[in-house]
Amino acid sequence: MEKQDIVNYFSNILEKEKDVSAGMAAIRTLLEVLKHDKSETVQELDSNLRAAGDAMRNTDYPTTAVVSGCELFSRFVTLTNLDTASFGECKTIMLQRGEFFLKKLGLSRGKIAKLANNFIVDGSRILTHSKSRVVLQAMQEAANANKRFEVFVTTSSPDSSGVEMYHELEKASIPCTLILDSAIGYVMEQVDMVMVGAEGVVESGGIINKVGSFTMAVCAKEMKKPFYVLTESFKFVRTFPLNQRDIRNDFKYPASKLLSDLSKEHPLVDYTPPAYITLLFTDLGILTPSAVSDELIKLYL
């Protein structure tokens, strides 16, 4: 597949299927690349997959999950016994594993929603930030289980993704209120917990998420409200930011802006250190932030 085809395939998924996150789309694209791949050696294949990953990173979609998804995918397809006779057979095995991987990941959102369900009790008031598909699904499931709870959603500038979240929640007939980003401190005293999604979970156990999440986390900590993160495990990414400046530029800014003067650009994501996170709900179970590093070390060591 040519670079342009890859990018088209990738953006096509994201535009047509609103329910698919960038990370999932990246993994599906890589699987497609693997299907059409004509390489003769593992090394060539590896570099092709890498190139495909780079091509997807150069789009204006959120890249954190793309990076983690691509890395996990190449790990997953290659981490197996490949001592077969021909490279062709080897590739079939990889394809099977890829499909299996994708199927497994598809189930994770449901698992997380089920875990988070116990924490939403009757009468709770939940604050959430921006739009997260996992958080949305967890709330929909809680509503289906006849739980009575109320949600506050931030508008979340600059792309107002919170408004979308607000409409989705209204559709599910969950009582919700749209608030200004600057009103986080104002509503914090009224809520029982904060639930956010994540674009990426880093090695320290902290998260990279839509800008404003850190503000919310600091505020929640100060007011002693639990800060829960709902996220799929394919978003675990191997980076260890020490502060906000330390986050990779391609995570923070859209690819089209990377060559301009970044000091004048608005960052799209921020880093929330693990000290502000109470628990992470993942398809691997409920984890404390320190458990995340454990999982990543086990995989990549």
Binding site: R75, L79, K104, S233, F236, L284, K298, L299
Partner: peptide, 11 residues
């Protein structure tokens, strides 16, 4: 034990 590694290595 469920882990990310398990998820990766599972045959």
């Amino acid at each position: 034990i469920q882990s990310l590694q398990r998820l990766m290595l599972a045959e």
